[in-house]
């Protein structure tokens, strides 16, 4: 079990040191949120309506952007092969990498979202819901990103294929995430069901995504 935690710790340290994955994601996140109002127009009311959806989409794209850094470095220096042959089951390796990705990329972005939402005139009532929904949803996003990365590790045009593969998987998270965010100002009774479904998606991904990711890595290493 300690191997599991040390793998997570190792990945987070690498992410923080390189600044590659998380830094890129953060930079992209901020860039889009600044450019959106400039492109859409200063109409505050309109921006406010747009804010939850725009924030979620930007979160999705930012997480997507950082996917190639999940397995690529380990694949390139051979540590992925070692992990495949090591004592820890590959499924746990995949899970550890996903959790590390979430802690290093998804979670920080989720926490920053309400604050940056001010740029889009996000309704203050939604600060809490969006934080909660994004913290839960970003876990699913990281897990699914890890699955996509596992399938395309080492492929030349992997970036293109990853978007094609992961986009359909992200749609439910987006739909229920935005719904949960908007509930308070829209239909309050929907907050509960949306959050529950969002949590369910994250939990299901927690179990299923690492299994599929491990199968994909084994197929690559065989």
């Amino acid at each position: 079990m300690s191997m599991f935690w040390s793998l997570i710790r190792r990945d987070i340290v690498l992410t923080l040191r390189q600044g590659g994955g998380a830094g890129m994601a953060l930079g992209f996140f901020i860039t889009v949120l600044v450019l959106l109002p400039l492109g859409i127009g200063p109409d505050l009311k309109f921006l406010q309506r747009l804010a939850p959806g725009a924030l979620w989409i930007t979160l999705l794209l930012s997480v997507l952007l950082s996917t190639d850094r999940i397995f690529a470095p380990d694949y390139e220096d051979g540590s992925l092969e070692l992990m495949t042959m090591g004592p820890m089951p590959l499924e746990l390796v995949a899970l550890a990498k996903s959790v590390a990705h979430w802690l290093g990329t998804g979670l920080p972005l989720a926490i920053l979202a309400p604050g940056l939402g001010v740029l889009l005139n996000l309704d203050a009532l939604l600060f809490g819901p969006i934080l909660l929904a994004m913290v839960l949803g970003s876990l699913a996003l990281s897990l699914l990103a890890c699955l996509g990365a596992a399938i395309t590790v080492g492929l030349r045009r992997g970036g293109m294929i990853i978007s094609l593969l992961i986009l359909p998987l992200y749609v439910p998270v987006l739909i229920f995430g935005v719904s949960a965010t908007n509930a308070i100002t829209g239909v309050p009774e929907l907050f509960g069901p949306s959050m529950l479904i969002l949590t369910a998606i994250s939990l299901a991904s927690l179990v299923l995504a690492p299994i599929a990711a491990a199968a994909a890595i084994r197929a690559h290493m065989a």
Partner: peptide, 23 residues
Amino acid sequence: AIWQAIEEPAKAARLAAIVALVG
């Protein structure tokens, strides 16, 4: 795209199968 991107047929077959099932 997965079939096109991977050269070894056996590897491509396994990965494509995973992609199909996830979808």
